[in-house]
């Protein structure tokens, strides 16, 4: 073949209407996909921008040190206090209780699903468990307030109508599907050769699960719990409904106390004048929430990446 015919063949291909259409279509698809991806990044960026700019007036008037150390949060009182501690402790109480429920249950369930359940049982159980995640959170909230709290009052003396204990427990049930789903994935990603090695050394299935599979899936399981915790911290409806809306620095989870999210809901419902200091407290509280969940999500993200690379 001479160089001339090669060039002309290339030119012919280049000029083919069919191939040109394909090139244009591929370009359009790529642009569409890119703009979808860019949109989600833009929205995240916009949220951060709004949180930061709207909370700036707050931090210009309230010293940051007072914000962190003041033990009262009373932004709409005449003698206003702006200490985030009551909201923060309530948030961590509720999320901590949720984790106390979800950690042991989640571990047992995911070990059962990945190591003990027959495939047919697993296929039946997982969708049922995932249905828990499909229940609207407002339903969980009223379930906690109107059903579980009255029930729990019979066993727990001194339990208030609004309290941190019951919504914490309910949130634990709520994050269970996430925790189980991610940690079960991590456990199943542990190679079969490790399980065979464990059996070959004479381990029982229980020993294999706890001495080989869980250590092997450790970073993934930890990531699951971090993400679950982050979700519990950001959860709104359950605590807003069942934990009360009174900022209350307390060490007793039987009392009601407003979490950060509950406070934001409460303030957003009222008619606060735009630009007032009370209005900007919403964004200051939101910023704190954002920083906490971002921290746990990032930690979980890096751990998950680590376990993907392990094998």
């Amino acid at each position: 073949m001479t160089p001339e015919t090669q060039i002309s063949e290339y030119q012919a291909l280049r000029n083919s209407a069919f191939l040109r259409r394909g090139r244009i279509l591929a370009g359009i698809m790529q642009a569409a996909l890119f703009s979808c991806a860019a949109l989600s990044v833009l929205i995240t960026g916009a949220i951060i921008w709004v949180l930061v700019t709207e909370s700036l007036p707050f931090f210009q008037q309230v010293p940051f040190w007072d914000f962190l150390t003041d033990t009262e949060w009373t932004p709409v009182f005449t003698e206003a206090h702006y200490g985030i501690l009551p909201l923060l402790t309530a948030t961590f109480w509720a999320a901590g209780i949720a984790m106390a429920v979800a950690t042991p249950l989640g571990l047992i369930l995911s070990v059962y699903l990945s190591e003990f359940a027959k495939p047919s049982v697993r296929e039946a159980l997982k969708p049922i468990l995932e249905m828990l995640a499909a229940v609207p959170t407002v339903v969980f909230g009223y379930f906690a307030l109107l059903f579980l709290t009255p029930l729990a009052k019979q066993f727990i003396p001194g339990l208030s109508g609004f309290n941190l204990l019951v919504p914490g427990f309910v949130m634990g049930m709520m994050i269970l599907p996430y925790v189980v789903s991610i940690s079960e994935d991590a456990m199943r990603a542990v190679p079969m050769s490790l399980r065979e090695g464990a059996f070959a050394i004479g381990m029982s299935r229980v020993q294999m699960a706890f001495q080989v599979v869980i250590p092997g899936a450790f970073s993934g399981v930890t990531a699951a719990y971090l993400l679950g915790f982050s979700r519990a911290v950001g959860e709104t409806m359950v605590v807003a409904i069942a934990a009360g809306q009174n900022p209350n620095l307390t060490g007793d989870p039987r009392e009601g106390a407003a979490t950060i999210t509950a406070y934001i809901v409460q303030m957003s419902l009222g008619d606060l004048p735009h630009g007032s200091l009370a209005y900007s407290t919403i964004f200051a509280a939101g910023l704190v929430l954002f920083v906490i969940t971002l921290f746990f999500n990032l930690t979980g993200f890096f751990l998950r990446r680590k376990f993907r690379e392990a094998y």
Partner: peptide
């Protein structure tokens, strides 16, 4: 038993 691929425990 020792397997085809080394399978040390984590």
């Amino acid at each position: 038993m020792v397997f085809q691929k080394p399978n040390p425990f984590p």
